[in-house]
């Protein structure tokens, strides 16, 4: 099987430590930075962003509202205020362009927990698998949207670990840490990428939202791939890589088109051969990619 002890060594040797962890570091900065913007108020009295991810107000002018939570509220019969409508349009537009699951890998605080669990799984060599299907999250999404219609309240928000963790950090955690530890243990011991990749309806919602997004990861240098398989190991949604990376003979686009892709960029970091890069959705012409690749290589040499 795959040797976990040398995972990432090739990339570090080829590109250096920083370059082979670039997007990981940027993602942590993004996740922690967003939390910091919400925390300067309650901690230091400097109010930059008020509220939490469900709805916030930045510098007393910019409203941002989570479309998934607002949708649940509207299904239980709410007519939102203008600020919420403006906020939700901005958020929808943003994720529609950059990819819905950018929320998962660049914003969501639970991602730090599940990434830690995945990292520890690799270190400890835990290989448990579960029967849970990756489509479960879409069933969960349907469920969370039906419940407000039946029960008449935002039921999912009573237990949603994503909002609980963020709200917990900003407003007070209570016993919510139990749930976060639960997710950590579930991902560590029961199923690889169990929460984010299989169950979480928030990710499912954002996945649908970004299904036509413009920003995509592109295996533009796929002819340079040496089949080391490291991208599959670190990817939280490894099923999305194969069509783009291995699909040259079938004439498939090198762009990772699946909306399950979180645009986290771990594949870009881990690849010693620089196969992957961020690019546009429509950068599909292979010739063009090759040319771009040559130019890139030229710059690097």
């Amino acid at each position: 099987m795959f040797d976990m002890t040398t995972l990432g060594d090739d990339a570090i040797a080829a590109k250096g430590w920083f370059e082979s962890h670039k997007y990981l570091i940027l993602r942590r900065l993004s996740q922690l930075g967003i939390l910091a913007l919400f925390l300067t108020g309650p901690w230091f009295g400097i109010w930059i962003v008020k509220g939490n991810l469900a709805s916030s107000l930045t510098l007393d002018i910019l409203p941002l509202t989570d479309p998934y939570v607002l949708l649940q509220a509207m299904l239980s019969g709410v007519v939102p205020e203008t600020a919420a409508i403006i906020g939700v349009v901005i958020v929808l537009a943003f994720y529609f362009l950059v990819g819905g699951r950018v929320y998962c890998s660049w914003v969501c605080p639970v991602n730090m927990v599940t990434d830690l669990a995945a990292w520890l799984r690799r270190k400890l060599g835990i290989r448990t698998t579960s029967q849970i299907s990756r489509s479960t999250r879409f069933w969960m999404l349907v469920l969370t949207l039906i419940l407000p219609l039946v029960v008449g309240g935002i039921v999912w928000e009573l237990v949603n670990p994503v909002s609980m963790m963020f709200r917990g950090i900003v407003f007070g955690m209570g016993a919510a840490w139990v749930m976060i530890v639960g997710i950590f243990l579930f991902d560590l011991l029961v199923a690889k990428d169990g929460w984010c990749g299989h169950i979480c309806p928030v990710g499912a919602f954002y996945s649908l939202l970004g299904s036509k997004s413009l920003l995509k990861v592109n295996a533009s240098q796929r002819q340079a791939c040496n089949d080391c398989m490291e991208c599959y190991v670190v990817c939280p949604e490894p099923q999305v890589i194969k069509p783009a990376l291995m699909g040259e003979k079938k004439g498939l686009s090198p762009v990772i088109l699946s909306s399950d892709c979180t645009n986290c960029g771990r594949c870009i970091d881990i690849c010693a051969k620089d196969v992957f890069s961020y690019g546009g959705r429509h950068a599909t012409k292979i010739d063009e990619c090759k040319r771009e690749g040559e130019i890139n290589r030229g710059v690097r040499v």
Partner: peptide, 8 residues
């Protein structure tokens, strides 16, 4: 049903 728990 209406409160989205934003804390504003």
């Amino acid at each position: 049903g209406a409160c989205i728990r934003c804390g504003l």
